[in-house]
């Protein structure tokens, strides 16, 4: 049976990393869940690109950060912060598509 990210993570968030990038963090409850999630290879460039309807080339980095049992995904912002068409200056409400991840 596949598990929901909501049972494995304590934090799922998004934020600007400067005005031109958006960065998504998933912090896992413990090392075991972090390792299992990583082993399952759930998060790939293609998967994130599909979730956010962006080209795969816009998904810049996927980094597992062991000191905080965390996964970080950094992507190109669809438009720079504050440019015409902006919806979220701080980029703090772009995490929801991740909440449907299972592993």
């Amino acid at each position: 049976m596949r598990r929901s990210i909501l049972t494995a993570a304590t934090v799922v968030r998004s934020k600007n990393s400067g005005p031109y990038e958006l960065t998504l963090d998933i912090l896992f409850k413990d090392r075991a869940r972090f390792e299992l999630f990583r082993r399952r290879g759930v998060v790939t460039r293609r998967r994130i690109a599909a979730l956010y309807r962006r080209p795969a080339a816009d998904i810049l980095k996927i980094v597992y950060f062991e000191p905080s049992n965390a996964l970080k995904i950094t992507m190109r912002r669809p438009i720079p912060s504050g440019d015409a068409g902006e919806t979220d200056i701080y980029g703090a409400q772009q995490h929801a598509p991740l909440l449907g991840l299972t592993y």
Binding site: S17, D25, L27, V63, F65, A70, T74
Partner: peptide, 30 residues
């Protein structure tokens, strides 16, 4: 440990390498 390390991620593109004026912070051995 988690709150501190988690903060190292905050608003950064890459938690292991944090660029700044004149160089970068390398946290790979942290």
């Amino acid at each position: 440990r988690v709150s501190t390390a988690a903060h190292t991620l905050y608003e950064k593109s890459d938690p292991y390498h944090l660029p700044g004026p004149g160089g970068e912070l390398d946290l790979t051995g942290c």
